[in-house]
Amino acid sequence: MGRSINNIIMRFKNIFCFGAMLLFMSAANAQTAKKFLVCGDTKVLLVDYNKSKDSIPEVIWTWDASQATDLSEDYRKKFRTMDDCKAINDGKQILVSSSSGAIAVVNLEDKKVMFVSSVPNSHSIALLPDNRIAAAASTNKAGNKIMLFDIAHPEKVLYTDSLYSAHGLVWDAKRKSLFALGYSVLREYKIVSKDALQLKNEWKIPGIGGHELQPSPDGGHLFVTEHNGTWVFNIKDQKFSKLKGLPDAENVKSLGQIKAGQYIYTIPEESWWTFHVKFSSPERVFAFPGLHVYKARWFTN
């Protein structure tokens, strides 16, 4: 009888240990699983970092605006130059903007366009509470401003505020703030109603030609790039400092970091585009021949 009880106890221990091992492996895989978005020309790509070999990316999802049957011909033309792409809603949807003049929200699963609207020389896009969409309209006779939309009414502009060469947008859920980057300033907006924003703060950036704006993994800083280099803005201290551990190149078009510390970035090789997506800490380079890559973003943090 004693042996039987001991055998049962040992079996339970083995089962428990095996289950714990599976949970540990599952958690480890979740932590090491890395994917990133790439946008350029008419396309947005999702790449599996771990399954890619050498410099050859393993593309696991593609949205090509030129092939999107739920877009009108006029809108397909407005997505010729994809310049920003961000995962939202736990990766179920992708925010897309194009300097050819439009923004969109695309489902990852079925590639349906759930929202589309015209934005002159759009360079960035952000999802706000209450299904609001903010867009940065850059240099254009009808641009140089921040625009606010309701997803349910895509063609109606709820609010605008002038911002010369608007290029970057980040919604900070913790602070309930929208940060916006222009040619020479970084701004902070607050929501004052479902249909309006209000400028709260403005800081002069350390340079001109503000381009990229992305949150740090710790949520306390913003990555900022301008014509001459890359910076980190401490939101609490309201101070800029040089970003260390990354090439301080001109015209960095996109820059991001995951919690593990690895950076993803793009630097133009010809005019405004590149054919490579680069990583730092650790270093790696992926080639995208034939695609005029503008930005690349971590899909998850």
Rank of each mutant, 00 (worst) to 15 (best):
F24H: 04
P154E: 05
S55V: 14
K239V: 09
Y164W: 01
W231T: 08
A104P: 06
D64K: 01
Q257L: 04
R187T: 14
T62D: 09
P215H: 10
S4D: 13
I205N: 01
I205Q: 09
K145T: 08
L71E: 12
D90S: 05
G256S: 09
G209V: 05
W203G: 12
G101D: 12
R175F: 07
N50I: 13
K239Y: 11
V119Q: 09
I151V: 10
T139L: 13
I103W: 01
F286I: 06
A142P: 06
I235N: 14
R175S: 13
G182Q: 07
I9R: 09
S100W: 00
D64I: 10
P247V: 08
V47P: 14
Y294P: 00
G261P: 11
W272S: 12
K141L: 14
L128S: 06
N140L: 03
D237Y: 14
E270R: 15
A249I: 03
K145E: 11
A68C: 03
I125W: 00
N144R: 10
K239R: 01
G245S: 14
T230D: 13
K43D: 13
V116S: 05
P215M: 01
D54L: 14
E212S: 15
V185Y: 12
N201M: 04
A102Y: 07
E155Q: 13
E155F: 06
M82K: 03
M25A: 11
K236F: 10
K200C: 08
E202K: 08
G182R: 02
S117V: 04
L291M: 04
D195F: 00
K34I: 13
K253Y: 04
M10H: 15
V116Y: 07
L108C: 13
V105L: 15
M82Q: 05
P57T: 00
G19W: 08
A196C: 02
R80A: 15
V119H: 03
Q238G: 13
F12K: 12
F179T: 11
P268Q: 11
N251P: 00
K112N: 11
K194D: 14
H276L: 01
W63L: 04
N89L: 10
I103P: 05
W231Q: 06
Y49W: 15
L186H: 10
R297M: 12
K174H: 11
P268R: 05
N144D: 04
P289L: 03
N89F: 10
L128T: 03
P120Q: 06
Q198I: 02
Y75A: 12
G219R: 07
D64Y: 07
G91D: 05
L255T: 04
A287P: 04
G143K: 01
K43Q: 14
V47S: 14
G91H: 06
Q214V: 03
G219E: 02
E212W: 07
M10C: 13
V119L: 09
K141T: 15
P129Y: 09
N140G: 03
V113L: 02
G168E: 00
L71M: 13
P206S: 08
W273L: 08
L255S: 07
V113F: 11
K200H: 06
L46A: 14
S165T: 00
R284C: 02
V170Y: 03
Y164P: 06
N29V: 10
R284I: 03
F18W: 10
E270W: 15
K295R: 15
A249S: 07
S4E: 13
L71N: 10
F286V: 09
F115D: 09
N121V: 00
V113H: 01
K253Q: 03
I267T: 09
V59H: 00
N29I: 12
C17E: 12
A196K: 14
